[in-house]
Design a protein around this nucleic acid. Sequence first.
DNA 1: GATGAATGAGCCTTCATTCAT
DNA 2: GATGAATGAAGGCTCATTCAT
Lengths: 203, 203, 203, 203
Amino acid sequence: MPRVSQMHLRRRREAILNAAMEVFVTKGYQVATINDIAQQAGLSVGALYRYFPTKADMLLALVRERLGRAPELFARMAGRAEDPWERLVRCVELFTSALRVRHPGTGRLLLVTLAEAVQDGEVRQGLHDRFAGLVRYVEGIVAEGVASGRFRADVEPRTVAALLLSLADGVAIYWVTGTPEVELNAMRQSLVAMLRAYLLPEP
Amino acid sequence: MPRVSQMHLRRRREAILNAAMEVFVTKGYQVATINDIAQQAGLSVGALYRYFPTKADMLLALVRERLGRAPELFARMAGRAEDPWERLVRCVELFTSALRVRHPGTGRLLLVTLAEAVQDGEVRQGLHDRFAGLVRYVEGIVAEGVASGRFRADVEPRTVAALLLSLADGVAIYWVTGTPEVELNAMRQSLVAMLRAYLLPEP
Amino acid sequence: MPRVSQMHLRRRREAILNAAMEVFVTKGYQVATINDIAQQAGLSVGALYRYFPTKADMLLALVRERLGRAPELFARMAGRAEDPWERLVRCVELFTSALRVRHPGTGRLLLVTLAEAVQDGEVRQGLHDRFAGLVRYVEGIVAEGVASGRFRADVEPRTVAALLLSLADGVAIYWVTGTPEVELNAMRQSLVAMLRAYLLPEP
Amino acid sequence: MPRVSQMHLRRRREAILNAAMEVFVTKGYQVATINDIAQQAGLSVGALYRYFPTKADMLLALVRERLGRAPELFARMAGRAEDPWERLVRCVELFTSALRVRHPGTGRLLLVTLAEAVQDGEVRQGLHDRFAGLVRYVEGIVAEGVASGRFRADVEPRTVAALLLSLADGVAIYWVTGTPEVELNAMRQSLVAMLRAYLLPEP
DNA sequence: GATGAATGAGCCTTCATTCAT
DNA sequence: GATGAATGAAGGCTCATTCAT
């Protein structure tokens, strides 16, 4: 029975995080109240405090457990394609689909969290870790492409990776604020074209 | 101190906005208090309210008068170079220098404001206007390059512009949060190389 | 202290209203502070807001639940005397005793509330309802007296009722402000004599 | 020239009082702001403070100079009719017409002021003085009627006067709050009939 | 003398957190 | 273990009063 209880606890914790995420991305972290979250979760205020000691801890948990897992998630979903170029393109596609289909809300969470990072060191650290992880992953792909001669020799893997991920999050942020200029599909195609022109040597 | 000049009023308004900006980008909009701003401005709380009816109006004024003027500022500073390519590169450089030298703080303001846009329609609109204006400006440069045959014929000016500006703001946001992976100079150089490979036809 | 009984909630609500009434009639509505009321009630400020969403709602509740019940209270206490004249005299007596003994403070509340009615439509409506209810009740008595031939045939029940109640509240207001000219007992006796002379036909 | 200046000062003082009265009776004393009054008067805030040291003094001046003069005003307007009964009826008529025609606003001022009297001793004293003065005046008429044998011998002049004036102010207060049950003309007629039945011996 | 910008104490209200039931 | 009523510090905003211009 202890196992059941453990699972029960974990489930409830996740439910609370889901509720917190929903509320945070809708109203923003500071404006969201513990009561909002409790209502969204269908729990009492007191119950929430058995899982998270403060409101800030809920955000931090979201940063670490939702945003922070992006690197491993990407690694898993980008798959094991042999060709670095294929994998890179797959990454770009993943980002687009994640934004639109798979994890809507994560983009908003990123934005809300980034704003909180301005004054909260732990949140900032969590976001840095995520970014660094993603950069490292994409950097690896690019480095592999360079090493294998598939990509142009003079590209800096780290810089290109940082560029790509800044772009990805920049797009995400404008996408979630509903800026009409941002048309995901067209941008993805143009980006892939741009990367192709840049990375792949002329045939 | 009544019957002060119009200039005095205008100056003081700017001083308050400066103080508000400083406080907002340091603590975030919601956490910043009117008292913080008053102290930063060296004025009393009441004085602030002669210039802005609410705290939200201070943020809105910043969005409109600082962020919102980015398009015209860019147009003015990018200059009248004949060559579209030169102007595009100049834009990329401008963004980097603005971030680091000319308008430090504006990047942070952008971030803080974006988060507020999640729940404040007017702020959101202000940011949309800024983004749309910038996109329009860069789009014009790219379209000119395409029209003149200087750029590849199959690039979509609007999409490339949106891509570039999403990237710019993405970089800005990570830059202001002190993400160590973001090294502005290297990124600028790689970006220019990428754009050159994409936009300029092979010689 | 959650999951408290409905009765506890109701009691506490009444306690808060009692405290609010005490403070309002002592300092006036506008001058009274929420802190005053909380202290008088022996509760925290926050607790008050679980029972009333705003300070204005406390006043409104008092208007509706204390002043507004005057008509039914009167109907009950005036009893079921057969003779309209007896009932009318009983009403006059009731008013005097209510002012002095039974509901001291209600007179002051009436005054404080009337002043607030100048600018608060809901309060005004509540007072109108109370006045209309009282007029209707007294009007009924007079009409009965006229119909039964006990009273002079040419009196207008509605007008006499309005006159009586205006007088009652006028007396109440001066009484609560401690005007020395207002001596309740003497006034009651003179009023009864006046009504007798007016309403009852000569023998 | 000092005389002209004196008159100028007096005029301006009156203008300020007029403005204050207008604002007080519209919003209530506490809610009215000095700025409201300054705007209504077409003067600067500073100017007001050259005539009245505090906001409370404006109300007090109104109590003393507008409400407090009611007794002498009544005495003058009620005229020098020989018959006490005529003069009494004239008083009742005066009150009605004053309320409706001559001094609209005074009724509201009375109400607003009464509420303030709850906590302001000077205001309370001013209102007591007014009431006492009016009572004394009406009492004189009644006493004269009794002495001359025109009225019934067993009426108490003081009590009847207090009754009449409480009624008058009670009516005024409900009249100014717009209570529809209060129809001035009908009430005046019934009141006169009632007084006739009470005061005048049967022929 | 007049003006109205500036002051700052004080108010209503909110909400993270606690803890009695 | 769960609940949600209670707490009270803190924030946005107002406004009577002052005083530099």
